[in-house]
Design a protein around this nucleic acid. Structure first.
Lengths: 86, 86
DNA sequence: AGAAATTTGTTCGTATGTATA
DNA sequence: CTATACATACGAACAAATTTC
């Protein structure tokens, strides 16, 4: 899944993989992405690496986190915004 | 904040700056010093550089690490030692 | 009321590879 | 060749928020 030989750092590869899933509609808006524990196993990387990957998607406003709950795909519809964001 | 032209390496400059704050009472005994992430931004250096700077202060018994919490200024009173150090 | 489980967030310590002086 | 610095990554521990029982 992760190419450790190439020049692209794993955290960027993971960010790209998640972005692809989201834009392909595999993980629709409003749904949660896999938990950090699940992604640790799926990608075979450490928490710190996932943290950076998720931070990239956060900066792109693709996902948002709810502490204690999970990381959710943002609803980027015409009216904009996310459920709960007043 | 950091002079990269001069002969004094950044990690020594940072150690000196932290020592000054501690001895001036800006960061009193028992209190935490800024986290590594915060200091990365404040000083504009990498984690590795901070690691060396903090190691200097540790060798001087000025600070100690509490796992998962942070780096704390040592209480250097007459009876010596740190709270929690049995 | 409260304890346990799950999940995210933050913390330090360390290792590796690369680059520079 | 050594010292210094950076980016990346891994590991472990602790905290806070949320849900479930």
């Amino acid at each position: 899944m992760i190419d450790r030989e190439g020049p692209i750092p794993p955290y960027q590869q993971i960010a790209a993989a998640l972005r692809k899933r989201i834009e392909a509609g595999e993980i629709p808006p409003g749904r949660r992405i896999p938990s950090l524990v699940e992604m640790e196993q799926e990608f075979g990387v450490a928490r710190d690496t996932l943290r950076k990957a998720v931070q990239v998607l956060k900066d792109e406003r693709l996902v948002e986190t709810v502490s204690g709950m999970g990381i959710y795909v943002v609803q980027h519809s015409e009216d904009g915004g996310v459920p709960g964001a007043s």
